[in-house]
Nucleic acid binder design. Structure first.
Length: 292
DNA sequence: CTGGGCTCCTGTCAGC
DNA sequence: TGCTGACAGGAGCCCA
């Protein structure tokens, strides 16, 4: 398992690769490695005996529900375990990946969380440690709730349509690229997919978000959806060695139109692809195909 | 309230 | 070959 750079499609592919298999598993033990972005927020031993529910995704976060063991089923040993129902909010940061396997064993230098269950071992590997695993009583309380509170709509949420998307952009003076990345209108498009969606929509990434006409906003929303959906279909399309939690690799690499192609000929018009920096992040675009 | 910049940390790669 | 600096796909937080 090498580096993974997770945007929404990679997180979703990861989720699909282990959610069914871990559903209903009982936690045998848990351990942590080096500190992640936030502390776990609970003693690892308290997780023992809890039952894993259905893993869901919100933006680039995963929520792994953990139900309290039934008191009448627990051994006297477990009866001291009073941790109520809750769950783990997981984020892969910039370099995180999850593996679900049978292989137990010691944590490697970049393994920072491991949940051993009756159905397999879920392990977070994250060299840069921008990721997180956080205990919370529910998605609506505590730190998880706080982190999710500011998120925009899911890209495939029907409540998000051209009219509401356009309305949300109205008045915003930030560049449209940054408005996409901010994730407070629509979640899921990271740096790669934001660049790719803007290219497909023919929109200059520097255009102030509020200046997008409604038809162009509609087009952009459609392209955000399309590029994310294609990437999910292809099994996660990270530029390098994306692996899902089985260790399986996506069969395709998404052929980016602009991302990472600075100086190369635009696949559509032949002009060299530009690289600029917006909010300390690289933006790639074609000045022939993308207009203000 | 908005927007801009900084920050966390380690690995990789280009260039000298 | 070895060193140095730039850069990396996220996103919360602080400040003007």
């Amino acid at each position: 398992m090498i580096s993974v750079m997770p945007e929404l499609p990679e997180v979703e592919v990861t989720r699909r690769s282990f959610a069914e298999r871990i559903l209903g598993a009982e936690v045998l033990s848990a351990q942590v490695g080096k500190p992640l972005r936030w502390p776990l927020g609970v003693d690892v031993d308290e997780l023992r005996g809890h039952t894993v529910g259905e893993v869901v995704r919100r933006g680039k976060y995963l929520w792994l529900p953990l139900a309290q063991p039934m008191p009448w089923l627990s051994s006297p040993d477990d009866r001291s375990n009073s941790l109520p129902d809750g769950g783990l909010l997981i984020h892969l940061g910039m370099s995180g990946s999850l593996a679900f396997s049978w292989s137990p064993g010691d944590l490697g230098p970049h393994d920072h969380f491991e949940l051993s269950t009756t159905r397999g071992v879920l392990r977070l590997t994250d060299p840069r440690r921008f990721g997180a695993v956080i205990w919370g009583p529910s998605l609506g309380e505590g730190l998880p709730a706080k982190l999710l509170a500011g998120l925009g709509l899911e890209p495939f949420d029907e409540a998000l349509d051209a009219v509401s998307f356009h309305a949300a952009l109205r008045g915003k003076r930030v560049a449209i690229k940054q408005a996409l990345l901010a994730g407070d209108i629509v979640v899921g498009a990271g740096n790669i997919y934001a660049c790719e969606a803007l290219f497909r929509a023919g929109i200059d990434p520097r255009l102030p978000a509020g200046k997008l006409s409604r038809p162009r906003a509609a087009r952009l929303l459609a392209e955000v959806r399309a590029v994310l959906a294609e990437a999910i279909e292809q099994g996660g399309s990270s530029l390098r060695d994306f692996r899902d939690a089985h260790g399986g690799q996506g069969h395709f690499q998404l052929a980016t139109q602009v991302y990472g192609r600075q100086g190369l000929a635009c696949r559509a018009c032949g002009l060299p692809v530009q690289r600029i920096v917006q909010a300390q992040r690289s933006t790639f675009f074609c000045r022939g195909c993308q207009r203000r």
